[in-house]
């Protein structure tokens, strides 16, 4: 069975390590915060100027001055801090953020990523994505394996305008966990009940399959 969005987030949460400072993008990445393993302390960075992001506020306690990068009302946790946007991207550029999780429209076998523009259709802008992918030490992409037309999003070369080059380290989709290596996508794990053949058929870029590929564990 292919994973749902929450299960993709849950699998990514297993990559968190104690003491990590983590930036979670909009969409599936945001859900990772719901699955932080017990005993692991991570600090969530929101690039509009907050370290120590907490859950959504209780009804009636929303504060218009306290939002995340997705413009959602949020709360802070003990030990949090606020700062301006230059410092926020300063800490990202300086490599202080340990892990970045973001969504993508396309990723290619070199680790290039496209997630900000569809020429002629969508021109919303890159927001902080280009800054993040240019500097983050460890980038995990959370996305569906194929687009709504059923076409693979794991490509030999991106067709959409790039957000950054050679930056993605790992991809978690509803079907598989893959690393980006010098030789292409490497299949590490498959979703429970999903066959290697299905993953091969839905991966357009070069895919390395070695030995038995284990099922994901949660």
């Amino acid at each position: 069975m292919a994973l749902d969005k929450n299960q993709i987030a849950q699998r990514i949460a297993k990559e968190l390590k104690d003491g990590y400072y983590v930036n979670l993008g909009i969409g599936i990445p945001t859900l990772v915060a719901n699955y932080i393993p017990a005993g692991i302390d991570v600090v969530l960075q929101s690039e509009n100027g907050l370290l120590g992001m907490g859950p959504f506020p209780f009804e009636g306690e929303e504060d218009a001055d306290l939002i995340n990068a997705g413009k959602q009302t949020i709360t802070t946790v003990p030990g949090s801090s606020f700062f301006d946007s230059a410092m926020s991207f300063g800490m990202i550029r300086a490599g202080k953020v340990d892990l970045t999780v973001l969504g993508a429209m396309e990723v290619n076998e070199n680790g290039d990523i496209a997630n900000w523009k569809i020429p002629g259709k969508m021109v919303k802008g890159m927001g902080g994505a280009m800054d993040l992918v240019a500097s983050a030490k460890n980038i995990i992409v959370a996305m569906m394996h194929t687009n709504p037309k059923g076409e693979s999003k794991l490509l030999p070369a991106c067709t959409l305008p790039l957000t950054g080059t050679r930056c993605v380290k790992k991809i978690v989709t509803e079907l598989a966990v893959l690393d980006i290596t010098d030789k292409g996508f490497k299949l590490l794990e498959r979703a429970p009940g999903v066959s290697v053949e299905e993953i091969i058929s839905k991966t357009a870029g070069k895919l390395i399959v070695e030995g038995d590929v284990p099922e994901m564990e949660f």
Binding site: I92, G128, D131
Partner: peptide, 24 residues
């Protein structure tokens, strides 16, 4: 890029004509 936008503002306030960033 958002960080470029922020830092180009900062540079103006710091009296620096330009910045260097990997974004983009």
């Amino acid at each position: 890029p958002q960080g470029t936008l922020a830092t180009r503002c900062m540079a103006a306030g710091y009296g620096m004509p330009a910045i260097f960033t990997p974004a983009g």
